[in-house]
Write a protein that binds this DNA or RNA. Structure first.
Length: 618
DNA sequence: TGAAGGCTAAACAGTC
DNA sequence: TGACTGTTTAGCCTTC
């Protein structure tokens, strides 16, 4: 059908005196349809045979044109040929004009041949997997830029080459448009972009036809209007001779490459050759399409990258000699219990149950923890990274809340961090164990299965870490966070790392030049909290945030305790949890820990802690 | 290579 | 009695 369409287009164009430009646009439009089909449905993509057939048709057309242009036949169409018999005597001038016209037509035919070959080449590349053709959106009209379906996967050189095709260049590097005798042929030159321009208005997606393109993204993607305005307005500003469309003495207008010795000449050339007219406007539209296609391609490549990373990092069947795959041992161990522990009515997660994906690999917004440390890793490593580099929990999760909520992704945080976050998210800053469970399952799809494992881990962490305080309540026991303990624990981890400590300013303590890790670690304590989309009410979030800021922000910014230093987020009035007196020995080896016993003199504790930390930093 | 941190698994006791 | 909760220990892995 597409072949018929192309053939029909050629036939129609052959009947027209102005057939070349019509042929070009129509053919390219047909090519655009081909491109769409190839992008959207590979089964219907234009085969090489079809292209060859099209090419043959084109050659036939060339021959037909040449026959029509034989001496005596004139340049007229068959219709006009009937009316004007070659009986009349031609003048010398008429003969010269005829010869020139023949050459022109022949050049146009050659150009079209080149375009066809280019398309065929690109299709072949696509077929060989060298190009990825996302193709325009369904229903999107054939626009000039879309006459170049493979451009989305093109290299800049290929795009430039295609641009030459579109703009009528056709020649390789060094071939100016003028060389082809096309450039100065007026509105009907080469590719009648004005015609295509009108076709762009038929797009079912006008927004796509004229996408908002950042003119800074691609230097060549500037509209002529903007260019001229910029020229006029900033002529004095550009005394340095810099212009996005000018570089290395060459006009960078797509498909131009005219040599301009100096900037003034370039401006003159720009005003003369790329003035605001239909052609420039059409070229700008084409460039918009190019940018749009590139953006689409970029997004697709990005998705592909994420998929690749997800595949490489989370493959449970990754060949390992060890019975426990290195990556996400916890996930694997959980997976083995999946059939019995997975609730049947859980929301379906986008990933396979046996192949959870790391947020590093699959999250739409790759967390910073990825860095270079996202190699296959076990939980310990990842979690240590999350602590070490001190990713802000909420800042890491909040943008990906829906992702964690729906995707079977293990959050890159320790259980302790998550438990703390759960408690901080609560209205009363205290949660029962069951509520902590609920927070886990509600917030992370990953924790909707293998409950026995992670629940055990939660209980284990609650009991293990002194920062979690069990408070007897009327209705039972609730768990709270002893922020002091939590921070001490974090500080210990950070101060205990010489590599981190050595970069810290000694005189400032938590000063302005605070090490990024420590700063982020402290920032984690002032989380805006996670519950943005579905968690705690915003007011509560702000409250807790403010509270945390009150206790910790002053450390981040000024390096000194503010006079109104607020106590830890939650200091349980009833301290039920019995802690051994020698708690500092095993769990808090650093000097900071001397303040671990929930002293009411919190300010003193903090000062002491800061002082100790500063000393440690020295 | 060892220490440390983190996770999983399991055992055990107490409570509901 | 069984489930749940809380504590403790052990083993493994990874990072430093």
């Amino acid at each position: 059908m597409m072949q018929e369409s192309a053939t029909e287009t050629i036939s129609n164009s052959s009947m027209s005196q102005n057939g070349m430009s019509t042929l070009s646009s129509s053919q390219l439009e047909a090519g655009s349809r081909d491109g769409r089909s190839s992008a959207g449905d590979t089964s219907s993509e234009v085969s090489t045979v079809e292209l060859l057939h099209l090419q043959q048709q084109q050659a036939l057309q060339v021959a037909r044109q040449l026959l029509l242009q034989q001496p005596g036949s004139g340049l007229k169409s068959p219709k006009s040929q009937d009316k004007h018999r070659p009986l009349q005597v031609k003048t010398q001038q008429q003969q010269q004009q005829q010869l020139a016209a023949q050459q022109l037509v022949f050049q146009q035919q050659l150009l079209q041949m080149q375009q066809l070959q280019q398309q065929q080449h690109l299709l072949n590349m696509q077929r060989q997997g060298l190009l990825s053709l996302p193709g325009p959106a369904p229903g999107q009209a054939a626009l000039p830029g879309q006459t170049l379906p493979p451009q989305a996967g093109l290299s800049p050189a290929e795009i430039q080459q295609l641009w030459k095709d579109v703009t009528g260049g056709g020649g390789g590097g060094g071939h100016n448009l003028e060389d082809n005798g096309i450039k100065h042929r007026g509105g009907g030159s080469g590719l009648d972009l004005s015609t295509n321009n009108s076709s762009s208005t038929t797009s079912s997606n006008p927004a796509k036809a004229s996408p908002p393109i950042s003119h800074h993204s691609i230097a060549n993607g500037q509209s002529p209007v903007l260019n001229h305005r910029r020229e006029r307005d900033s002529l004095h500003e550009e005394t340095g001779g810099t212009h996005p469309l000018y570089g290395h003495g060459v006009c960078k207008w797509p498909g131009c490459e005219s040599i301009c010795d100096d900037f003034g000449q370039f401006l003159k050339h720009l005003n003369n050759e790329h003035a605001l007219d239909d052609r420039s406007t059409a070229q700008c539209r084409v460039q918009m399409q190019v940018v749009q296609q590139l953006e689409i391609q970029l997004s697709k490549e990005r998705e592909r990258l994420q998929a690749m990373m997800a595949h490489l990092h989370m493959r449970p069947s990754e060949p390992k000699s060890s019975p426990k795959p290195l990556n996400l041992v916890s996930s694997v161990t959980m997976s083995k219990n999946l059939p019995s522990t997975s609730p049947p009515n859980l929301p379906q997660t986008p990933t396979t149950p046996t192949a959870p994906i790391t947020p590093m690999a699959a999250m739409p917004q790759v967390p910073s923890v990825l860095g270079g440390a996202n190699v296959p890793s076990m939980g310990a490593m990842r979690r240590r990274h999350s602590d070490k580099y001190s990713m802000s929990l909420s800042s890491e999760i909040a943008p990906n809340y829906e992702f964690y909520k729906n995707a079977d992704v293990r959050p890159p945080f320790t259980y302790a961090t998550l438990i703390r976050q759960a408690i901080m998210d609560s209205a009363d800053m205290q949660l029962t164990l069951n509520e902590i469970y609920s927070w886990f399952t509600r917030t992370f799809a990953y924790f909707r299965r293998n409950a026995a494992t992670w629940k055990n881990a939660v209980r284990h962490n609650l009991s293990l870490h002194k920062c979690f305080v069990r408070v007897e309540n009327v209705k039972g026991a609730v768990w709270t966070v002893d922020e002091m303990e939590y921070q001490k624990r974090r500080s210990q981890k950070i101060t205990g790392s010489p590599s981190l400590v050595k970069n810290l300013p000694s005189s400032l303590g938590y000063g302005t030049a605070l090490n990024a890790s420590l700063q982020a670690a402290l920032a984690e304590t002032s989380l805006p909290l996670l519950g943005t989309p579905g968690g705690s009410p915003p007011t509560l979030m702000h409250m807790t945030h403010d509270e945390l800021n009150g206790s910790l922000d002053h450390l981040d910014t000024n390096g000194h305790s503010s006079p109104g230093y607020s106590p830890p987020v939650h200091m349980p009035s009833v301290h039920v949890k019995e802690e051994p007196l020698n708690m500092d020995d095993d769990d808090c080896p650093m000097s900071l820990v001397t303040t671990a016993n929930h002293s009411p003199e919190l300010d003193d504790d903090r000062e002491l802690e800061e002082g100790n930390l500063s000393e440690d930093l020295e």
